[in-house]
């Protein structure tokens, strides 16, 4: 699934958050969106998902303007994974996953055997099938994030948008979740996630989109885009980028901190 953002602008009242943003994400692969707090990463996602409906410009899915789609049709194209949270009621894990099959079924229907099979396959894919009958509020944060990924898979879309999927997770779960996300892109999913860690982008991203204040967008491979001056410009932090294992991976070190030791 390709996603083309064309002259997309959005303002909260007088405050212009996105101003004529343009970029195109090609099918397959993991794209990381980087940018300082408040630069408009979430707003961009909300526009693509049409949660903020009154944007100007266009968002094209495989060449079709997403504004032409109904809420239900759009849900068949893009799945959204929010940061994990506790819902008001204690649903079973399988019930949480089944929720995303709603776009596929009739208005007055609930999910049937076919949807249940899709949901179980999705849980198996993320390694959570044994948790199907457990209460969602009783499992750990990392497990919840995996369940939400399973829910996105059960939505049967080719494009998945994740809002900082690792922000509430411990280190081990961060790696496990990102590794799963990377595998999914190899199976043909197009995944876009926002992140605050340049190192994550170096390790996992096929492409990065950097949103800079003033709505300048940099788009390319991580090695092309993420540079020492770029990090300084976005986050106002001096870093040194180190190449490891014959440039298989790069890591950022905040060098000013070394002199403070």
């Amino acid at each position: 699934m390709s996603l083309k953002i064309e002259n997309l602008s959005y303002a909260y009242g007088d405050h212009m958050v996105l101003d004529k943003v343009n970029f195109t994400i090609s099918p397959g692969g993991l794209t990381c969106i980087l940018g300082a707090n408040g630069v408009g990463k979430s707003t961009l996602f909300r526009c693509i998902l049409r949660l903020n409906d009154n944007y100007t410009g266009h968002s094209y899915l495989n060449g079709f303007d997403s504004r032409e789609l109904s809420i239900q049709e759009l849900a068949k194209q893009i799945a959204y994974i929010p940061q994990s949270h506790a819902p008001a009621f204690n649903y079973k894990v399988i019930e949480i996953v089944l929720m995303s099959t709603t776009a596929q079924i009739g208005n007055f229907k609930g999910p049937g055997e076919k949807e249940k099979k899709v949901a179980m396959e999705a849980l198996e894919r993320v390694g959570m099938a044994d948790f199907a009958e457990q209460g969602y509020t009783q499992i750990s944060g990392g497990e919840r994030q995996l369940v939400l990924i399973a829910r996105a898979l059960a939505q049967q879309t080719k494009l998945i948008i994740m809002d900082e999927p690792t922000s509430n997770l411990d280190y081990g779960n961060q790696i496990r979740v990102l590794s799963l996300v990377k595998q999914l892109t190899r199976e043909g999913y197009t995944i876009i996630q926002s992140t605050h860690h340049p190192d994550q982008a170096f390790m996992y991203a096929d492409e990065v989109v950097v949103l800079e204040k003033g709505n300048i967008v940099h788009h390319g491979s991580p090695k092309e885009i993420i540079s020492e001056p770029m990090i300084r410009k976005i986050y106002n932090i001096n870093v040194e980028i180190n190449s490891l294992y014959d440039d298989l991976v790069r890591v950022t070190v905040p060098i000013d901190e070394l002199t403070n030791r």
């Binding site: 909300r46 998902l49 049409r50 949660l51 809420i71 849900a75 995303s100």
Partner: peptide, 23 residues
Amino acid sequence: FLLRWKINILTMGDDEARTMGVD
């Protein structure tokens, strides 16, 4: 009675429910 499945999805909050295709 007929919309009881949809109530489940609305309990997840408006944003999530919309991205799952519920008006």
